[in-house]
């Protein structure tokens, strides 16, 4: 399912102009990371993808749907959105019920809900914790529950807002594993992140935003090598990219494999 954004502008009621002309097309199955400084408009942008915000000007299309013509609860069939703070959405008595909430809202039959929940719990390594109350889990695991509760909706598009904030290395790997699984299933994944190494290792396309506009947009290797432009939006290139730049490697590298291949030459 295509995402087509045309000349999107958005101004908050306070008068803050958060998006200043964004045009963007995301093809089905793409893995996109959005990076940029605090207040660049990243969250404002993705909130337009499931209709939580409506364009002040321009338009956002999810497949053949104009987001202005469908309520958020209907757009949820196509776009799943994992909020940054899991504590702003968890309310059920146990993990299983929490994860079933979304697909039930979408009106899927009971057997399908069960299958979707089971799959989402397995993918997020929560199967053992189905009967646990989400609030008895650590914040690390609550984050996984929030993730599972969107995956179970089986949407073509999945949005993740800062999935790795405050997470340790083990859980970051778990989240990376989930994203890889979604890629294999042909889902579109759009992630906002400050964790640039995580971005480099898990995403093929990177969009850098600054002051409500798109600064850079392209294949990860192209975007992440632009040290000077990235610095204007308070982003450093990934560790190995910087190392490659300093060593004067010809091509931009962004993960261990690329780095080792390049240095062998």
């Amino acid at each position: 399912m295509n995402i087509i954004i045309r000349d999107l502008r958005f101004t908050y009621p306070t008068g803050l102009e958060a998006l200043r002309g964004i045009s963007l097309t995301i093809a089905p199955g793409e893995q996109v990371a959005i990076v940029g400084q605090n207040g660049a408009g990243k969250t404002t942008l993705v909130k337009h993808l499931n209709g939580l915000l409506q364009p002040t000007q321009g338009s956002v299309h999810i497949g053949d749907w104009d987001t202005r013509q469908h309520p958020v609860s209907k757009l949820a069939v196509r776009v799943g959105y994992v909020f940054q703070n899991p504590d702003e959405q968890l309310f059920s008595q146990n993990v299983g019920m929490e994860v079933a909430f979304g697909p039930k809202n979408l009106g899927y039959p009971a057997e399908k809900v069960d299958a979707l929940v089971k799959d989402a719990l397995a993918l997020t390594e929560l199967s053992e914790k189905t009967e646990t109350n989400p609030y008895d889990l650590s914040s690390t695991w609550r984050k996984m529950v929030a993730l599972a509760s969107i995956i179970s909706m089986d949407t073509d598009i999945v949005i993740l807002d800062e999935p790795t904030t405050g997470q340790d290395a083990v859980n970051v790997r778990r989240i990376a594993h989930v994203i890889a699984a979604l890629r294999e299933r042909g889902k579109t994944v759009i992630t906002i992140t400050h964790d640039i190494d995580f971005c480099a290792e898990n995403f093929e396309r990177v969009i850098a935003m600054s002051q409500g506009q798109i600064l850079l947009d392209g294949p990860a290797n192209e975007v992440l090598g632009q040290e000077e432009i990235l610095a204007t939006t308070y982003v450093d290139p990934p560790q190995l990219t910087r190392l490659g730049l300093r060593l004067g490697l010809k091509e931009t590298v962004r993960n261990q494999e690329e780095f080792l291949t390049a240095i062998r030459k």
């Binding site: 939580l52 949820a76 069939v77 504590d87 968890l90 309310f91 909430f101 809202n105 969107i150």
Partner: peptide, 26 residues
Amino acid sequence: AQRSRGLDTQSSFVKRVGALVPLVGP
């Protein structure tokens, strides 16, 4: 967050009342 999970809070009064639990808990 709950509307993003397909919760209908806008159409009918009954649905609005039902939507209170997922709101009040968090």
